[in-house]
Amino acid sequence: MTEPHFLIATRTSYDAVATAYAERFAGVHDTQPLALAMLDAFATLVRTAGGGPVVEVGSGPGEVTARLHAQGLDVHGIDLSSAMVALARRDHPQVRFEEGSMTALDLGDEALVGLVAWYSLIHIAPEAVPATLAEFHRVLAPGGLLLLAFQVGDEPLSFTEAFGHAVSLDFHRLRPERIERLLRDAGFTVQARMEREAGDGESTPQAYVLARKER
């Protein structure tokens, strides 16, 4: 099966900028208390439900995965970019990181109790989002939790250069209402939604959606 162009472009671009990206955004989550509140609530709900395997897809340099691990979750990260995976392994050796695509996870059916896509669904072409959410549904056990984070909007932001490197990166802004509809279509029930205004260095509002796979 031929790999979609948007996956090839995303992988190649993040391989090129991995080190500079990790340095630029190191610790950024510590300045976003509302975002951290959603992550922490996700971790609490997973623990309260008895725990089990959790995956962050599009884990990048690994900070979010490492935060969830520090909160006692059995979590590992998956990323398209081998360079990002190498950085995550270097900086967070206590956590497992693997190469892979969220569009075709190397996991069995109902293998997870939780899945996080933290600003990573934004790199999936709009026409591929429904199938990606269906893949999340496949790997989550009944009652499993899904946490999404994304920028709010309608028009994509495209880059051909970043950190002095040629790239081909599309950041697809998403509407929470559309994401909620697609989640329902995929067999999820939305549990919570939060939107916040753009902060320093951000150009759009940000959204966080917590959903549960129907039992």
Rank of each mutant, 00 (worst) to 15 (best):
L174C: 05
S120W: 01
T160Q: 09
A88K: 02
G143Y: 12
T160W: 08
L73S: 05
Q206A: 13
Y208E: 10
L121W: 00
P130W: 11
T19H: 14
T44C: 12
L36S: 12
E161Q: 15
L105E: 03
D30L: 15
R173T: 05
S168L: 10
Y14P: 07
L68F: 07
Q191N: 10
L183R: 03
F163Y: 09
H172N: 08
F136T: 04
M84L: 11
L45A: 14
P176A: 07
A22E: 11
L34D: 14
L146P: 00
E197A: 14
A35E: 13
H69I: 08
L169G: 03
V116T: 01
V139H: 03
T10Q: 11
M102P: 03
K213N: 07
G51R: 00
P33S: 07
L157H: 08
L182Q: 14
P142V: 02
D200F: 11
E202F: 15
A104L: 13
L146S: 03
V95N: 02
G58T: 01
M1L: 13
F42D: 01
R175Q: 15
G52T: 00
A88G: 03
L39M: 11
T19S: 15
F136L: 07
P176H: 03
K213E: 00
G164D: 00
R181L: 13
S203A: 15
G153T: 06
R89D: 08
L145D: 04
V55P: 01
D74F: 06
R11L: 07
L73Y: 03
D15I: 02
A149N: 04
T10A: 11
L87E: 07
A49K: 03
G52V: 06
G51A: 08
L157I: 12
F42H: 04
V190M: 01
A192T: 00
G153V: 01
P176T: 02
P205C: 10
T12F: 10
A125G: 01
T19F: 11
R181S: 14
Q151N: 10
V95W: 06
D106M: 11
V17M: 05
V75G: 08
R89N: 06
L105H: 02
G27H: 08
